[in-house]
């Protein structure tokens, strides 16, 4: 088979675009896991609700006849959706997880699954089951693009990749360079000792949920601007992001980013070079292979035996 490098590049770009959305969601899974060893299955629904909050904000601005320039309106949507999702994430933690923190891990997992179903159905009852799109003014502003050699880059792809990159860099700075980041890392390492050192672990955990949820909401808006949304998108996207987190090594922040991007690219290459119907088979097959050879994920550290 002769390989056209232009098409290969285009497919990698396609993969990076959806992959950066997976990565934004995967960060929330991995951060919560890092601190609580909990797989927060309700996280996919936070992503979905974030996407609807963004849509609601844009429609609300339209209904109130507040006509802002497109970039400003988008900024408002991102702020509202990310703040709303952050509150939702903190609320979920406070109501559903904190009371169970000393219970067996299985109880938390079941709670997470139950919460996911509750949120999904609540949104279904609220907005119905149909697919919705973001207002045309916004999607069409991003539809065009430019050619970089043989690769066509749409403004939407550029925007998605750019924003995802900014958010990921921001998160890395936050975790590595700030007091809050240091507290988060300390709590992840050993919550009891961190507590003895004067770190309020409840607050750190709440902030972790807030940050992860805000990132998922940003992913949700990017998703809504690109595709159509409905109450069910959190299931599939959440599952893919969870896989991305495991692929990269769950608990590891750069791992979640790498895992998300990699999963997107593998999917795109599978659909582009083999068949659209085999996309998921290929993606999941690779996941299984990676986990056979690196059970702790690509960047996951082998847990040292405690002496």
């Amino acid at each position: 088979m002769d390989l056209d490098l232009g098409i290969l590049g285009q497919q990698i770009l396609n993969g990076l675009t959806i992959g950066s959305m997976y990565a934004l969601i995967a960060l929330g899974y991995t951060m919560v896991y890092g601190i609580l060893q909990l797989i927060n299955f309700a996280h996919g629904e936070v992503f979905m609700i974030g996407s609807f909050l963004g849509l609601g904000t844009l429609l609300g601005l339209e209904a109130l006849h507040i006509s802002l320039p497109i970039p400003l309106a988008l900024l408002v949507a991102f702020v509202v959706a990310m703040a709303g999702a952050a509150l939702l994430g903190m609320g979920i933690e406070r109501i559903a997880y904190r009371p169970l923190r000393s219970s067996p891990r299985l109880a938390l997992l079941i709670t997470a699954l139950g919460l996911s179903i509750v949120l999904q159905n609540a949104v279904m009852l609220l907005v119905g089951t149909e697919d919705r799109t973001y207002p045309e003014a916004f999607t069409e502003a991003l539809i065009d693009g430019f050619d970089l050699g043989p690769i066509h880059i749409s403004y939407q792809q550029l925007f998605t990749l750019g924003l995802a990159l900014v958010l990921m860099v921001g998160l890395t700075v936050l975790v590595q360079r700030t007091r809050l980041g240091k507290a988060m890392r300390a709590t992840a390492q050993d919550p009891v000792t961190a507590g003895l050192m004067g770190i309020e672990s409840n607050r750190v955990i709440a902030y972790t949920f807030a940050i992860g949820s805000a990132l998922a909401a940003a992913g949700g808006i990017l998703f809504g601007l690109t595709y159509s949304i409905n109450f069910f998108i959190g299931y599939q996207a959440g599952l893919k992001a969870f896989i991305a987190a495991v692929l990269g090594g769950i608990g590891n922040i750069p791992g979640a980013m790498l895992g998300g991007l990699l999963l997107g690219v593998v999917e795109a290459l599978g659909a582009g070079y083999v068949s659209g119907t085999w996309k998921d088979v290929i993606a999941f097959g690779i996941l299984v292979l990676v986990l056979i050879f690196r059970p702790s994920g690509l960047l996951g550290e082998r847990v040292a035996e405690k002496v």
């Binding site: 285009q10 497919q11 396609n14 998703f223 690109t226 595709y227 795109a268 659209g276 996309k279």
Partner: peptide, 15 residues
């Protein structure tokens, strides 16, 4: 074929 319910069809469309 495509998978109904999927949202991202760009890889197939690129082909």
């Amino acid at each position: 074929g495509i998978q109904t319910g999927d949202k991202d069809f760009t890889p197939v469309l690129t082909r």
